[in-house]
């Protein structure tokens, strides 16, 4: 297996993040660097990736594992190309998030927590994303999809499929 490595450009970005903290406090850069690793290395953090991040920040692998397992945004197993993270907390629930989750499950033929067999979609249920006034909603990558309806879900899935077909 070929070991994942950051590009030169990314390594510069990482140096820039480290420079924001006092000397010897490079561990502070861990969360941002893990975000970059997840983005660059297939949407999740393998043990190899975490060990690599540890070596870059000159900290112990266990210091990376304990952080990666604590925060919900880090995926510790492979995910689909498009990850739907639908908020299920109270305010979204009062505006119909449960039926949106059910609809996506039926449409994609998977349960929350699963990935479609073509590797395109992962559905996750998540807790409050601070979008309660625009409920129901989900996060997809770096953006929020708000005021969800079944029609809107249809068009998001369609867009993803088109995007995947073009970028194959």
């Amino acid at each position: 297996m070929v070991m994942n490595k950051f590009s030169e450009q990314r390594l510069k970005e990482i140096d820039n993040v480290i420079s924001r903290f006092p000397d010897g406090k490079q561990k502070s850069a861990l969360l941002p660097v893990l975000h970059m690793a997840q983005e660059d290395f297939g949407g999740w953090l393998s043990v190899e990736t975490m060990d690599y991040v540890a070596s870059l920040l000159n900290i112990l692998p266990i210091e990376v594992y304990e952080v990666a397992t604590f925060y919900s945004m880090y995926n510790l197993k492979p995910v689909g190309k498009y990850v739907f993270e639908v908020c299920q907390t109270g305010p979204c629930m009062t505006r119909g998030s449960e039926s949106i989750i059910q609809y996506i499950e039926e449409k994609l033929g998977i349960k929350a927590g699963e990935t479609t067999s073509d590797g395109l979609f992962t559905l996750k249920t998540v807790e409050c994303l601070a979008a309660c006034g625009y409920a129901p909603m989900m996060q997809m990558g770096k953006s929020y999809k708000e005021h969800l309806t079944k029609e809107k879900v249809d068009s998001i899935i369609e867009e993803c499929r088109n995007h995947a077909a073009k970028n194959n």
């Binding site: 975000h35 304990e66 925060y71 919900s72 945004m73």
Partner: peptide, 19 residues
């Protein structure tokens, strides 16, 4: 990286220290 508890100020500081 997704943790409500980090809104508590000392948890936030721990998180900012990379923990």
């Amino acid at each position: 990286a997704g943790a409500y508890i980090c809104g508590e100020e000392t948890a936030l500081l721990e998180s900012l220290e990379g923990k």
